[in-house]
Design a protein around this nucleic acid. Sequence first.
RNA 1: GCGGUCGUAGUUAAGUUGGUUAUAACGCCGGCCUGUCACGCCGGAGGCCGCCAGUUCGAGUCUGGUCGACCGCGCCA
Length: 580
Amino acid sequence: MLRSHSCGELRLENLNNEVTLAGWITGKREFGPILFLVISDRFGETQIVCESKTMVKQGAALSLEDVVAVSGVVRDRGDNRTTKITTGDIELRASSITLLNKSKPMPYDHKKNASDTIKLAYRYLDIRKSDIRDKLIVRSKAASVVREYLDALGFNDIETPMLNKSTPEGARDFLVPSRLASGSFYALPQSPQIFKQLLMVAGMDRYYQLTKCFRDEDLRADRQPEFTQIDIEMSFVDEDDIMQMAEDMVRTVFKKVIDADLPSHFPTISYAESMEKYGTDAPDTRFGLEIQNLAPLFANSEFNAFKSAATAKGMAVKGIILPDAFASYSKNQLKKLEKEVQGDGAKALSWFAKVEGEITTPLLKFLSESELETIANMVDENGIMFAIADKESTVLTALGNLRKKLALTHNLYDTNSFSALWVTEFPAFEYDEDSDRWSATHHPFTDFDVDAVERGEEMGKITSRAYDMVINGHEVGGGSIRIHAAEKQKKVFQLLNISDEEAEEKFGFLFNALQFGAPPHGGIAFGFDRLIMLLTGTSSIRDVIAFPKTTSASCMMSGAPAPVRTLQLSELHIAVKKED
RNA sequence: GCGGUCGUAGUUAAGUUGGUUAUAACGCCGGCCUGUCACGCCGGAGGCCGCCAGUUCGAGUCUGGUCGACCGCGCCA
């Protein structure tokens, strides 16, 4: 070992010990005949004093971020103790300094808020100098808690292939050209979905994996082209078994990693109720501001925009009530809010405020006495009711986003608290206007009541056996009970207008497997990165990934993606087309 | 693919109605300093104002395009 202690370790009890520390120089304060250095590693920092002429000379030659080993005796700082660092009671009187490696000056000032560009270009320095380091440690800890938890329940960690066959459904695949089979390609997995189901057919009973998934779609603050899933599948279970296990696992992770208590039972809300109350399928329930249906109120309104929205099919007029806030709003701010909802496709945002018992609104002259009275009864003094009349889906999206925005600007919730819940009863099908047909909302292996279709129930009302776990308005995990009977799977393909040939080509190997005694099974997959974002309280996924990519999916350090040599291309039977 | 914000010494920023030699702080280099801990003081070096074109007598500043970073929409079964 090049050191006897870490840089965060020494205390008064080590007085007069002869020790050696190794780390980076992070401070240097010179006073002629005496010189202070600060040596740091990820465990902490320790002050070094150079007093002899030789030591001062050697110390003065060092630069910040040089890597050194320093030997000497631990000394009490006496009157000069500090509480700013954990080793502030002591200092190390240097008797020898070994320069292990020199460092160029830092390319940016880590104490200031440097640009993402330069921090990503020197990611290893950002990890060394910022709290990214702590977030990566949380990530490591969380992964080990997950493994411990699942191992104890008899789950087996089984790897699945990275080189797969491309399936045209779902997200765009990352492709890997084949050298041996000219013109053929592998696809990197979007998730191990089919393989984990095959493992159930294989009788493995309980499977899990922390594994990379790849999706070639445009990025967001919470999306990377490669990300990590906690992938889980179980045999001989129903929804409750999986949900109970999954929430207990997540509770354990939050408790053991950040000592946070999630509720002992996660409430369940149906997709329909979630959309109606919160305008989203991933509601944040740390605050109220639930969406109210205003259709009854305006069904006979003189104000035509409201009346028609309240009565026409597929239209809606809904609102949310923000208590005790109107006095703090200017006309300008209300205009800004309207701009926001217009960004979500709504035509306008109406508002009604209660001032001294009376309703104030730009729509005053369009509304009847009784309408104003009803609103006055709904809103408390100084409260505002915001309303949107539009296409139902637009109204819900816009109010859902407005709700989050208002809660954030008015500090309506504790940012350190957690709300965890399940969303269930998702529609099994959604209507695709482009292709004029119904398609599976989740993947086509999700179980649902197929007979309901034969009974003639409305396609849009049939729900599937799927469930999403939502924490603080983020979907952290989702899964379903799968179809395990080949016959049923065949029917579903037919319902979805997937021809036999198409089904055979896309999913043939799974379909075959279902015919060989597939057990009832189901599972769930968690977005591991998003879970770590919640554990570390960050809003950027890049903060929880050691070497992330930019929003255009490139790496600021390596320059990936990059062109390759012609020889490599020709081995792969590939010619690159020139862009115009 | 679309929209928004941003791009000026190594870094973070300022830069007025378009006008002489483009500022500051931190960092870097040299010097001084015996208890600092954001040490202090003196001096110095450091610029393709992202890139290309245009308007103009004159562009860091105005216009168009382009590249990059970030945020959002589409997309992400």
